[in-house]
Design a protein around this nucleic acid. Structure first.
Lengths: 255, 255
DNA sequence: ATGGGCGTTGCGCACGTTGCAACGCTCCTG
DNA sequence: CAGGAGCGTTGCAACGTGCGCAACGCCCAT
């Protein structure tokens, strides 16, 4: 809506790909060098862009700080963290917390597996939305028309043979997840990794977040992982209760 | 330099404090509501702000993604990480990696202590620049005039009785650190926590990052922690060698 | 009912932003 | 060592865009 700001902000994802010099930025923005310079200067003053010793620009430090502060304002995260930790202690596997925002699903917290073989993931990184168990839960809760709209717009990359192939299949899966109240990803993203996930609901019953337990085949089979479902659901329900203000704080969460 | 962008970017730190509605944003920017609305819309389109269900704005998801990508473009971090991990395995304490940028020093990586008592810190968060061991190393390497300029501008909060009290004391400390090639923080930030740090240098000999080992008194005394200094320096030197391209990859780092 | 608070829209004018051209600089190359 | 190419930087005048205003619609509380 605002041309100047729009251009300035377009610089950020551009620099995210890697450092670039003034000319490159100007070219990719389709503006004159002097314009790009002014925009970069403004970004620089706000610390979003840093000028490294070779004069090239890259993303700046304030970005980290902002992202951190944004994190801390997500109160689901704060409430859920001790529960994630306890769940991890109970089963030993990697535990994730994810939320839905603007068509993306992203991990906002994680407790690493205690086994040597771990799955790769990063907090803040969008998840594979068509296959991840947490994504299914978060999307399944959307009102029907919106859910369909989202499903139509998505790409369906075939990470593995078991990946969700297309929109109709995805919508069917979401319907199932919606009914059963939990979700799985059995090798749909990485052949050898399975997940079980359960929803976290707010006071109004809407799904605000989802938590999952992930483990590679070499550690536990899919069937064994499924036996953890009650544990995951209990943890998620505990967070739900706390988040919606029903249960003040569960005893276990205190310590 | 660019008014519109300047105003738009000023919204971000403002929202970092917590969600705010249109009126609040407009007030704190000192602009008309309609102006604030347009700016917020533009930020929204780029995913930097998110409109939550109660219509208030808060920082958005793309911010996380950007910060993550920015991280991954810091190649020191990538190179250093395995060394941090091994250092942590060797001594068991919390290991930090920090860089200097635009007058701030911030942690860009961390491996948690294996002891139950841990120090609080967060990746991306600026460190207590006047007392942290890593900050001393990074600032000590600046050319003298710049170093003095920075020292003069800083605040010297008295976190503890042993905190650096003022600019002259800080400059003396930096001089000492510069000469000895390593730094400590003995209870200068938190009464019961000590750190030892060593510098990581680029091909030109300039300090590009610093790594430290931190531990609370209750786990090891300051003297005991100091015995780890050779270990820390060796790790830092290994990173320096790899980063500057001298040693391709050390054997230990491979596994 | 009615007022206040909120976000939103259309509009005309002013001002901030734009692209150009010219400059200074460093780094190659002949 | 002169010359040229490539880069970032500056001042300027013309344009276009973002600005504040005022009015509207909406929801909630009184």
């Amino acid at each position: 809506m605002s041309q100047t700001v729009d251009r300035a902000l377009s610089i950020l994802p551009l620099l995210a790909e890697g450092p670039a010099d003034l000319g490159q930025v100007a070219d990719r923005l389709g503006v004159h060098k002097s314009t790009a310079l002014r925009l970069l200067r403004t970004l620089h003053e706000h610390g979003l862009v840093y000028r490294q010793s070779d004069q090239r620009y890259r993303l700046g430090a304030r970005l980290f700080a902002l992202a951190q502060e944004a994190m801390e304002n997500l109160d689901v995260r704060e409430i859920a963290h001790p529960h994630l930790a306890r769940l991890n202690e109970a089963c030993g596997h990697t535990v994730h917390l994810a939320v839905h925002e603007e068509g993306e699903v992203l991990y906002i917290d994680k407790v690493e597996s205690r086994y040597p073989v771990r799955m790769y993931s990063r907090i803040g990184r969008p998840v594979a939305i068509t296959v991840a168990a947490v994504a299914k839960l978060l999307l399944a809760d959307l009102p029907e028309p919106e859910r369909r709209a989202v499903a139509e717009k998505l790409d369906y990359p075939l990470y593995t043979a078991r990946s969700t192939p297309n929109a109709p299949a995805f919508l069917r899966e979401l319907e199932k997840v919606r009914e059963q109240g939990w979700a799985t990803d059995l090798g749909g993203h990485e052949e050898s990794i399975n997940c079980v996930a359960a929803p976290i609901r707010g006071a109004d019953g809407r799904v605000v977040a989802a938590m999952s337990v992930s483990a590679p085949n070499v550690v536990v089979t899919a069937d064994e992982l499924l036996t953890l479902l009650p544990l995951v659901r209990r943890a998620a329900d505990a967070v739900s209760g706390e988040y919606s203000g029903r249960n003040p704080i569960t005893q276990a969460a205190k310590e």
